[in-house]
């Protein structure tokens, strides 16, 4: 991984931990926005500009705005301490999990399957099939869209309905029937 990638990973890790540890809600929200921006850059570095774009718009934009509006509507508890108290047993469990998952990273195959720029991360046979057959099967050139809408169309239907259900759920929770 390049130096930029390592710096981004470090930035994302630090901001993620800081989001959890900072006690002031407003500071946590702003640090979380910085975390999202780091993730957006990281996705772009990993050749997923569309995911990076969405992360920048949703993670750094919409989520931050929704959380800010929420603390503007409620209260922002002000304490003396900067950091929240740490639940050490939970922190140890999370740390062990992170080390376990992180230790699998060097074993991910990164063979360049199709000869292009795209690194094939996992299941090279499946990924290779999609990359080779997408245009013949569906007539679109963006393999991601093809997987999303054609090969896994039913899953995407579920996802879209989940988003719809989230909107309905908020309406139900707020005892209202109109969005505006």
């Amino acid at each position: 991984m390049s130096a930029v990638g390592i710096a981004l990973v470090a930035f994302v890790a630090v901001t993620a931990v800081a989001t959890v540890l900072v006690r002031d809600v407003l500071s946590a929200i702003i640090i979380f926005g910085a975390y999202s921006l780091g993730m957006a850059l990281f996705y772009t570095l990993l050749l997923a500009p569309d995911v990076g774009l969405t992360e920048a718009a949703i993670g750094a934009g919409v989520t931050t705005i929704l959380l800010l509006v929420t603390i503007a509507k409620t209260t922002r508890p002000i304490g003396d301490r900067v950091l929240a108290s740490i639940n050490w047993p939970a922190a140890v469990v999370v740390g062990v999990l992170a080390v376990l998952i992180g230790s699998t990273v060097p074993y991910i195959p990164t063979d360049n399957f199709t000869g292009g720029l795209t690194p094939v991360i996992a299941n090279p046979n499946v990924t290779g099939y999609y990359l080779e057959m997408t245009y013949a099967d569906t007539g679109v050139t963006n393999a991601v869209t093809a997987v999303l809408a054609a090969y896994r169309g039913f899953d995407t239907f579920g996802e879209a309905v989940v988003v719809f259900a989230a909107g309905v759920a908020v309406l139900v929770v707020l005892h209202t029937e109109v969005f505006s």
Partner: peptide, 19 residues
């Protein structure tokens, strides 16, 4: 269909414009 993007990404951007 022919460049990075799609319904989720584009829809999010259109929603952000309203915000």
């Amino acid at each position: 269909a022919d460049s990075p993007g799609g319904g989720f990404q584009g829809g999010a951007l259109v929603g952000v414009v309203v915000l």
